Simulated scan of single mutants.
Amino acid sequence: MDRLDAMQVLLTAVECGSLSKASRKLGQPLATVSRKVSELEDHLKAELLIRSSRGLELTPAGRTYVAAARAVLEQLHEAERAAAGEYVEPKGDLVVTAPVAFGRLHVLPVVTAFLAAFRQVSVALMLTDRVTHFLDDQVDVALRIGDLPDSGLIATRLGAVRRVTCASPAYLASRGAPAAPQDLAHHDVISFGSMSLPATWRYSSNGEEMAVPLRSRLTVSTVEAAIDAGLAGAGVIRTLSYQVVDHMRDGRLRLLLEGFEPAPRPVHIVYDRRNRLPLKLRAFVDFAVPRLRDQVAAVEL
């Protein structure tokens, strides 16, 4: 039995919550995953997992062993990074994640410039609007928009962006401009996201949140499509400022309900620092932070 491999299988099973999910993540047959966990339990002469229809639960011995196994594997990975020279010069692979639109518009140009400057580093840029997990998704650094939960992660603030409501001059000429959020009930609204749930836009009035339920005339699955429809005069849209800043500045979209928008949302670059920081990660953070700060400042409205 390869004990290090068995440790990794056990940790993956615990993180995934089931042996079947772990088998899919590891790309191994379910029977193989189950066998490796059973062999580890036989070797230790202790039950580590309680298997049930609701998933997996660690026994007291399992909790102790998983904590120790995680520490062992982290020390092994640390030793491998040191042996590979990641603390001598920036080299190796980096996984960077960012929201789809922000990543395409602002992170991708920084990544391509970074690759030109650091020839020994490769980057996998994961663009997704879901919140990624550093361990589960094997992420090295993330760009996050919004308030951050308390965690052991290191976060550097890059600036802030805000929600904006806007429409084209042609639409406003024919329908007028809403004076308050409640007036949106009498306007054509373009929303994006879920096709099955009703749209609700949240504003602020006298320091209190105001939820405005809407009936969308048009619902699309991406923010890019909503912006295109707004530019075409199909109705009122609501996005983050960086997504429409160029259209606002050239007059193709006009700002609405500015006094009712909630506070700006912070933008952070976030990474995990459990051990020594590999030079590839330190190099990326040092390279990206000033450039992204400039980009965020440039899209403020």
Rank of each mutant, 00 (worst) to 15 (best):
R238Y: 05
L127R: 12
Y242T: 04
F284A: 00
D250S: 13
A185W: 10
F284N: 02
L277G: 04
F114W: 08
R119W: 12
L44V: 10
L231Y: 00
R274N: 10
L240E: 15
Y87E: 10
T32Q: 12
T222A: 09
R249G: 00
P264S: 02
F192I: 01
L255P: 02
A46H: 11
D93G: 05
G159F: 10
M195F: 08
T128I: 14
S205P: 02
T64V: 10
E80F: 00
V141L: 12
A6N: 15
P60W: 05
E47P: 04
A124W: 05
E39T: 12
L279R: 12
L143P: 01
R130A: 09
R202D: 11
G193A: 13
E209S: 11
D286I: 07
L218P: 00
I190M: 01
S194P: 00
F192C: 13
R254D: 10
Q243C: 10
E15W: 03
Y203C: 02
A67N: 12
T32E: 11
A173F: 02
E47W: 06
H106E: 08
D5I: 14
D42S: 12
L108S: 05
N206D: 15
L73C: 03
R63P: 01
V270Q: 04
L148S: 00
T32P: 08
A167P: 07
Q8N: 07
V236A: 04
V95D: 02
P264G: 03
L127W: 03
E208W: 04
E209N: 05
D136F: 09
S241P: 10
V14Y: 02
P90K: 03
G193W: 02
A98F: 04
W201F: 15
L125M: 13
A67S: 07
I237H: 07
L277N: 11
S34M: 05
L125Y: 05
V220R: 03
A71K: 07
V299Y: 10
A160T: 11
A211W: 07
L49V: 13
R249F: 04
